[in-house]
Design a protein around this nucleic acid. Sequence first.
DNA 1: GTCTATAACCTGATAGAC
DNA 2: GTCTATCAGGTTATAGAC
Lengths: 200, 200
Amino acid sequence: MKNKTKDQSTEEKILVAARKVFTKKGFAATRTRDIAEESGINLALLNYYFKSKELLFEAVMVEKIAMLFGQLMPVLLETDLSFNKKVELVVERYIDMLLENPDLPIFVMSELRNHPDRFLEKMPVDVILRESHFIRQIQEKHPDQNPIHYLMSILGMVIFPFVMKPVFTKIGKTDEKGFKAMMKERKKLIPKWVEAIMEI
Amino acid sequence: MKNKTKDQSTEEKILVAARKVFTKKGFAATRTRDIAEESGINLALLNYYFKSKELLFEAVMVEKIAMLFGQLMPVLLETDLSFNKKVELVVERYIDMLLENPDLPIFVMSELRNHPDRFLEKMPVDVILRESHFIRQIQEKHPDQNPIHYLMSILGMVIFPFVMKPVFTKIGKTDEKGFKAMMKERKKLIPKWVEAIMEI
DNA sequence: GTCTATAACCTGATAGAC
DNA sequence: GTCTATCAGGTTATAGAC
């Protein structure tokens, strides 16, 4: 774990720190000094390597968006799996990924608000909606219903607990370990629920 | 009640503008000058009436948190309604409220991240979990399951689309009117789905 | 590539006239 | 209560030495 910082190039050190600080505080509340301090490098080097705070942020943001859709896309595009199996896979992978990056959703969504158009083209929403086999499978079962309804519900059940996490953990009701255990339970529960929903 | 803009006191004008700007940009990205401009008042008056940016923000934040729970609490505490009826009511009211305040959830949740402890006590999460009749009704049906699972899923299905709204609307796939229509459909769909989920 | 020093600008807040 | 002018402090970014 120590090598993780020792052997890194300066550029990587800055990126590691920028990921951490930007994700935690958001773009506007982050000072370049915070990132320099966090990474142990000199403030001037940040501009030397990334030109500006904006560009450094953009680099982090692109990564985070890729994480947000990286787990989703392959499964949704897959054509050789049953609908239920895909739901299982999406839920399982997404929860695992979010347990490692709990503040990813709230970070990406709240930054999107302040940089309205800059990052939307990085999101393969069109592809999901128009080309995904997953959406087609939904349409087969519910031809007269907007398929987005089902996708929204699945993602909502998976992602929303992470958005609410600060409320539940800080309030002292559920601790970090309890939250993790709960999300592992949801890996089994959500696919069952989705199956039931699809049969209505 | 007074005329919406003409008869407002200066204090009210500032509050109206502060709600709008803070909600749209978040605390850190908001400049007191933005609020002064938006409300048409002089910058110095902001400090005259609210002492500081922090205190003005706090006033707005308290209001927004109250909105977020105001629709929820009465229904969850109610003891004379069936579980299914309560779900109907919560979904209906919450969607209506969020259609009027689409960026409320992402605002409150993302600001909570930057002001971790200051506002958590304003949220009646304990009351919901420990005293609500709604949670008890869930426990009756699923005594061996954490009742939060079901609450999370209901709220996730309702709230998550609003969190994702910028993605779907800006991408040109769904416009404002289409989104609104979809959320009205969900008022009928979600209660049916929850009913099915509860029977597993 | 890395550092120090500083420029250039912005932001919250207040003093003081009216 | 409201305005203008301005201060004090903080922020990004860069120039220039090493």
